[in-house]
């Protein structure tokens, strides 16, 4: 586990190193070595993530010849919008945004509500119910029927071809997230629930009026993870949506990048396609994928602040 060792030794080392200057800076309060170390480690890891992010953004604006020469770029020079022009030309992306927004919004709402309610039933450890349900929800994490049966199910049994629900339904529940939620629910302070029961609240009321409001952080995690999944989903759309006007954004981008990277050696491609900026396009595609999510993430973060204090027990 070299990474762990790395982090830990870095932690100790940096903590010792950083102790002195940090102490001088914040002389008013005794600085906690661990807090200082945390700032340093998080910052270092942040840089470890930020530098590639910057390279990708800068690369997406850099002329292809420079990228082909060195593979990256720290400053977009010469500046070029070629990749974005290509991405935004051709098929209108507006329809794609509409489709993606619909799939993400409707899908996330359906997913979060069904995941949370199923997880609560499992978390309650009901005799004869919770344990079988655990197994029932776990098995699909390991066993998959494969593509062909799913295709037959959606197109022939459910007749969902060309519908956005054909994209949402097959990935509606992630067993992984069900169990993460179960584990969170089981950490909720029991006193609150007991208090409610003494007040005569029914199981459904407890769930909707006490458990859910207390669980905002995990609901935010669920919302974030599901939204990310739906926003990035293109394979289900490839399988089940055949009308190009209904393609979600990611499928349009996916098609474009597949065709452009193949265009160089494909008969039938125009010369302009053969000269498409391959590196630049891959970077620009990452930016377009990440952009909206990074904008949405701070909203989800609002719920990660300390939500539960025991003050809530009084209620």
């Amino acid at each position: 586990m070299s990474t762990t060792g790395y982090n830990e030794s870095l932690l100790d080392h940096e903590a010792r190193e950083a102790d002195k200057p940090a102490a001088r800076r914040r002389a008013r309060r005794r600085p906690e070595p661990f807090t200082v170390a945390s700032h340093i480690v998080v910052t270092l890891f942040g840089l470890f993530c930020l530098i590639p992010l910057w390279m990708i953004i800068a690369g997406s604006f850099t002329d292809e010849t420079v990228l082909a020469r060195q593979g990256y770029s720290l400053f977009p020079n010469p500046f070029s919008l070629a990749a974005y022009e290509l991405l935004f030309s051709g098929q209108s992306l507006l329809n794609g945004y509409v489709a993606s927004l619909f799939i993400t919004l409707v899908g996330t709402i359906l997913s979060v509500s069904s995941t949370a309610s199923l997880a609560w039933v499992i978390a309650r450890r009901l005799p004869w119910i919770s344990r079988p349900l655990t197994v029932f929800a776990y098995v699909p994490m390991l066993f998959h029927g494969g593509l062909v049966p799913l295709y037959l199910l959606v197109t022939q049994v459910l007749s969902l071809s060309n519908s956005w629900f054909a994209v949402i339904l097959p990935i509606l529940l992630a067993p992984f997230l069900v169990f993460i939620t179960v584990s969170f629910f089981r950490q909720l302070p029991e006193e609150i629930l007991d208090a409610a029961r003494i007040d005569g609240a029914g199981e459904l009321r407890i769930f909707f009026q006490i458990v859910l409001p207390l669980s905002k952080p995990i609901l935010a995690v669920l919302g974030l993870f599901y939204a990310v999944t739906y926003w990035n989903e293109w394979f289900m759309a490839l399988l089940f949506v055949s009308d190009p006007d209904k393609y979600p954004l990611q499928l349009i981008l996916q098609n474009l990048i597949a065709n452009v990277t193949n265009a160089t050696s494909l008969p039938g491609a125009t010369a302009a396609q053969a000269a498409a900026p391959v590196y630049q396009l891959r970077f620009a595609m990452t930016v377009l994928t990440v952009g909206p999510i990074l904008l949405a993430y701070p909203f989800a973060q609002r719920f990660f602040v300390k939500g539960i204090t025991l003050g809530a027990t009084k209620g």
Binding site: E64, T65, R69, T261, L266, A275, P277, V278, Y279
Partner: peptide, 22 residues
């Protein structure tokens, strides 16, 4: 695609081709 991109950037002097008019 990477090879073609580098060829077009002048980084490679010769590449594989086929008699396909491309």
């Amino acid at each position: 695609a990477t090879i073609q991109s580098q060829f077009q950037a002048g980084r490679i002097a010769s590449i594989w081709s086929m008699t396909d008019g491309l």
